[in-house]
Nucleic acid binder design. Structure first.
Lengths: 156, 156
DNA sequence: AATGAATTGATATGTTATATCATATACCTC
DNA sequence: GAGGTATATGATATAACATATCAATTCATT
C-alpha cells in the first residue's frame, strides 16, 4: 500500500513513547501539532532556532505557520520538560532526561556545534547548596559551558 | 564655577579606575563612548537590555544613537571583561569581578529582579573537571540560577 | 448535544541583533 | 608633522527573535 505525504517528521518509537508518557503523567494534551514540533526537533538532531523550526514545519506541511503557533508549542514542550532552550544560543532542543526538567546542563562546542547534555548530580547539589547559603530558593538552573569538544580541540 | 550638562552618567572613581586599569592592562582603548555606556550600566544598578541602555544614553546625550553603536560598545566591554550578558534575560550588567571574565555565575530573583553575582571557586573547578572528563576544552561558562531571593522567598 | 476549558489560527506589532559602507579618529613610523 | 594603517564611529537598512489580541475551533466531560 502507498502512503500520503508525510505531515510530520519521522519520530522513533522511543521518543514518541517518552513524549506520550511524559504528557500522560502530567495530564496534559500532546496534540498532533505539538508532537510535530517535537518530532522535528528530534529529527533535526541539533538545536534549532524557533524560526528554523518554523521553516522546517512549513516545508513538511506545505503551508504557512505563524511564529506564535510554534512559540506556543515550544513553550508547552518546555513546560512539560521535553524540550530545553539553550539560552546562550536562542535555540531549542529535545531534553534527553525529561525527568530533570528544571536542571539544564550543557557543553556547547563553538566549532562544530555539537551539544552534550550533562546530568551531574554533583553539580546540581552544589548549585543548590550555594543557592541555599545565599538564602536563595532556586526554581531553574541553567549551566551552559561553551568551548571545544574533544574532536575539535584535537584538530586545532 | 559652573558645569555644562552631563553627557555621561556619574561614575564613581572606584569603577572608573577599574575600567581604566582593565583596558590599560589589555592594551585596548577605553574611549569616551565606551566609558559612557559602562557608566550608564553602573549608574542603573540593575541589568539593562541593549535598548534600555540606548534610551538612557540618548536621554543623557540628547541625541539619537544607533543600536549598532551600543551593541559594539557592549561587545567591547564584554570582551575585556567589564560587562556580562545575562543570557536568560537578554540583558547586560557590569561585572563585579573583571578578573574572572570568563566565569559568569548568577542568582536571579524572578520576583524583585535582584541579581547576585557569585564567585564560587568550587563551582568553577567542578565545571572544569566535568568538562575535562568529557574531553571538552571550556572557554566560557554560564551559570544562571533563577528563583526567589531571600526577601522574596520569605514574603511569599 | 450542551457546556466550559484548552488549543489553534490570523493579524499585527514589539524587541533584540547584525550587515554594509562611508567617515572620522588615534597610533605609529618616518 | 605628513602619511599610512588600524581602530572606532556614524548612517541607513534589514534580519532574527518574540509576544499581544481577539476570533474560531477542538476536546473532555456532563
Amino acid at each position: 500500500m502507498t502512503r500520503g505525504p508525510a505531515t510530520s517528521a519521522p519520530l522513533p518509537a522511543k521518543w514518541r513513547q517518552l513524549a506520550e508518557a511524559c504528557c500522560a503523567e502530567q495530564r496534559v494534551r500532546l496534540t498532533p501539532a505539538r508532537l510535530a514540533a517535537y518530532a522535528e526537533l528530534i529529527d533535526a538532531g541539533h538545536p534549532l532556532s524557533a524560526y528554523e523550526l518554523i521553516a522546517l514545519l512549513e516545508q513538511r506541511q506545505k503551508r504557512k505557520i505563524a511564529p506564535l503557533t510554534v512559540y506556543r508549542h515550544l513553550e508547552f514542550l518546555m513546560r512539560v520538560g521535553l524540550v530545553h532552550r539553550l539560552e546562550s544560543m536562542q535555540s531549542y532542543l529535545p531534553c534527553e532526561h525529561p525527568d530533570h526538567a528544571h536542571e539544564s546542563q550543557y557543553l556547547l562546542c563553538s566549532s562544530c556545534g555539537q551539544v552534550d547534555e550533562l546530568e551531574s548530580k554533583r553539580l546540581e547539589k552544589l548549585l543548590h547548596r550555594i543557592a541555599d547559603q545565599h538564602g536563595f530558593l532556586p526554581s531553574n538552573a541553567v549551566v551552559e559551558v561553551t568551548g571545544l569538544c574533544g574532536n575539535c580541540a584535537q584538530s586545532t
